[in-house]
Write a protein that binds this DNA or RNA. Sequence first.
DNA 1: ATCACACCTTACGTAAACGTAATGGAAGGA
DNA 2: TCCTTCCATTACGTTTACGTAAGGTGTGAT
Lengths: 152, 152
Amino acid sequence: MKTNDLAEAATSAAGEPHESEELTRIGEMAKHFGVTLRTLRFYEDKGLINPQRDGATRLYSHRDKARLKLILLGRKVGFSLRDVKQMMDLYDPSGSNARQLKVALEKSEKQMARLQKQRALLDEAIADLSRSMDEARQMLSGNMSARQTAAA
Amino acid sequence: MKTNDLAEAATSAAGEPHESEELTRIGEMAKHFGVTLRTLRFYEDKGLINPQRDGATRLYSHRDKARLKLILLGRKVGFSLRDVKQMMDLYDPSGSNARQLKVALEKSEKQMARLQKQRALLDEAIADLSRSMDEARQMLSGNMSARQTAAA
DNA sequence: ATCACACCTTACGTAAACGTAATGGAAGGA
DNA sequence: TCCTTCCATTACGTTTACGTAAGGTGTGAT
């Protein structure tokens, strides 16, 4: 059990400037989301997250967590951090965010196309590799008439 | 029609030190295989191909073409140039190349596993992205109960 | 006082496969 | 001779998302 967990539990009862907001430090944040500290700092450096500070220590709010979740989802589906940022930057807390959603949808459609294409290429690669493996096995089993006579 | 094609056709009838070997220059080679000159020089620099020279000019033989073909196949199925080189370096013109084939097969199996895994991840990404797009569309159509209330 | 941690910043390093710029030589045509 | 085209070499630049090293601060525990 870490010293800091206790300290944290304590502050929530005795703490300083709190407003019923559960703030998380970078270490716990990293564990919770399965990323490294470096990654979190990197995202911040890129303007994707802006946790508040207690001195120099970063404190992540509920919204920061939500943002990180979105970032990670974005990355998972293949968006670049730049794209993710562009989309997030369009977020307006006081609106329907129709604009943001439209942009996100456009980007998503393009990304979907890329993914589908990648899938096709991947399937081709798998087929090619499969064929090559068959040929290699044939050659190994003595059948020297395989199209590919090894590396010429 | 390029000057050099004519020159080439001429040399094959009048040419210098030829031995019924059709040699190709880098330009034609690049066009034929759909790669850039830089790529061919790069592969040479990495020890993947070793064309002969006429002065400083590279001349690719039939075997060089076969090697390039293999290199490109390797790249297509996702092998690194380093892996391709390792496999090619095992080629022995005076043997069954059982060793080479075995190594190639091992590497291929690992690569196949990677490809399958990639495929799974890709499919997941596609599914996730598809879901996100649906949500975005729902939100755009006025349904504000979507799980994701845009970027928090 | 000294540990052991968790945190901080700065900043160079990494991987892969070429792209691209800069500069120059050789060959054949106008 | 001048121009164009193909070829050559050297070497720095590019991309993305962090890894990792180095050195320093702050805090509670021993």
